[in-house]
């Protein structure tokens, strides 16, 4: 049975079993040379691809960082936050605040009015004295009891 399967007679009767296709003249004689030049071309382009392949991650990271910097920097320089603009228009600059001994306005929002006034008076008192280790020790001894000093440490 196996023999019969392998040695099939032409199951389609009188049909010609020869394949009716042919190839251009000298096709097989020249095929190896054409193949060789194509392989050489592919290897050249492959080398170029390899260089790009290795540079690609570094280029991607550099481009991403540049984009992030740009996205952060441009809005901050072109469109500053509105409250900062208001302060810069209505309040002295930070430098003048420091040099004039004026408390920065931002700090005021963290205190109630009473806390703010006592802090200012304490600071003014401290300013009046020349700060030395001895005078600081005298100030603490005069204004705080032992319990407050231990609790704050």
């Amino acid at each position: 049975m196996k023999e019969q399967d392998e040695n099939i007679e032409n199951p389609l009767g009188k049909l010609n079993k020869e394949h009716p296709f042919y190839v251009p003249e000298n096709y097989f004689e020249t095929f190896a040379d054409r193949l060789k030049s194509r392989i050489e071309d592919e290897e050249k382009s492959g080398r170029k691809k390899t260089l790009y392949f290795y540079l690609k991650p570094a280029l991607s990271i550099a481009a991403s960082i540049a984009l992030i910097v740009l996205l952060i920097n441009v809005p901050l320089t072109k469109f500053p936050p509105s409250n900062q603009g208001y302060l810069s228009q209505n309040q002295p600059s930070k430098d003048s605040v420091d040099s004039d001994g004026v408390i920065p306005v931002e700090l005021i929002t963290y205190f109630t009015e009473g806390q703010f006034l006592s802090a200012v008076s304490e600071m003014n008192e401290l300013d009046k004295r020349k700060l030395s280790p001895d005078s600081l020790g005298d100030y603490i001894a005069a204004n705080y009891n032992d319990y407050e000093i231990i609790a704050n440490n």
Partner: peptide, 15 residues
């Protein structure tokens, strides 16, 4: 459309 085919009519039908 294959120009490299030289079969007869019956071979073409088989293909």
């Amino acid at each position: 459309s294959d120009v490299y085919f030289d079969g007869d009519e019956i071979q073409k039908k088989l293909q």
